[in-house]
């Protein structure tokens, strides 16, 4: 299987995105690292000065994406993989309905993804090749009481990616939805870490699964558990503490 040669990773400053960028760089891929925190990106890029391109960008700024996307492709010399890994999941109380906090999740987890992956879709439809990877979440499989809007953004992202897949797969474009379970990262730092998958392990599994179009969990156990969870009737699900 051919290695990726040119990739853009949005949300490359920490967590899964940073690990994906590092592993792609280690494999010889030229990578554009995109995120707000330039210092974090440059720390990663410092080890791969000839292969890494640093782009400071706030995913709220969707209007800037088309020009930046085109410029990054030029700097990379091509493109065969785009990963959208930006995401936020602030702590939300069980009785909290904070619209500003919720819309921030929509902006980062969904609007930014649409802005970046629409550009990827245009390009990959044109060249009839390429891979789009969106980092969703098992949290998008059901509407849970603990994180209503985080669940919503990940469910919407999965639906959006499914639609892209239905448009592009017949042209030879691979569209992948990854549904990690709890993963050690800044986003989950406020949660107990012990049973979480390390980010580097998650990144390894994501790259392996990125070759096959479709939705993927990162472990067989998750695939089974969330198959069951998805099929629990709503009247029963609301009685659980999941």
């Amino acid at each position: 299987m051919m290695a990726y040669k040119h990739a853009i990773v949005v949300g490359a400053s920490s967590g899964i995105g940073a690990e994906l960028a590092k592993q792609l760089l280690e494999s010889g891929c030229r990578v554009a690292l995109v995120a707000r925190r330039r210092d974090k990106l440059e720390a990663i890029a410092a080890t791969f000065p000839d292969a890494a391109v640093v782009a400071e960008h706030d995913v709220h700024d969707t209007a800037a994406v088309p020009a930046l996307f085109q410029d990054l492709c030029k700097q990379l010399g091509g493109l065969d993989l785009v990963v959208y890994a930006s995401g936020v999941m602030p702590p939300v109380g069980m009785h909290e309905y904070d619209t500003a906090k919720d819309l921030e999740m929509v902006a980062v987890n969904l609007n930014g993804a649409i802005a970046w992956l629409n550009e990827a879709a245009v390009r990959f439809e044109g060249v009839k090749a390429g891979t789009i990877v969106g980092i969703g979440s098992v949290a998008g499989d059901r509407g849970r009481s603990g994180q209503p809007v985080y669940n919503t953004t990940k469910a919407a992202l999965a639906t959006y990616l499914e639609a892209l897949r239905n448009r592009l797969a017949k042209l030879g474009v691979t569209v992948v939805t990854i549904k990690p379970g709890p993963t050690q990262s800044e986003m989950t730092a406020h949660m107990p870490q012990a049973k979480m998958m390390p980010a580097d392990e998650a990144a390894r599994r994501i790259l392996a699964k990125s070759r096959r179009t479709g939705e993927h969990y990162l472990s067989p156990a998750h695939a089974v558990i969330f198959f069951v969870i998805r099929h629990v009737p709503s009247w029963l699900f609301r009685r659980t503490k999941i």
Binding site: G78, G126, V127
Partner: peptide, 19 residues
């Protein structure tokens, strides 16, 4: 440049291409 102008083109032999 209009993004939708991107295409993958090959040489006649089909072994070399670029976008």
């Amino acid at each position: 440049i209009e993004s939708s102008r991107i295409v993958r083109l090959s040489g006649f032999g089909g072994s070399q291409s670029a976008d």
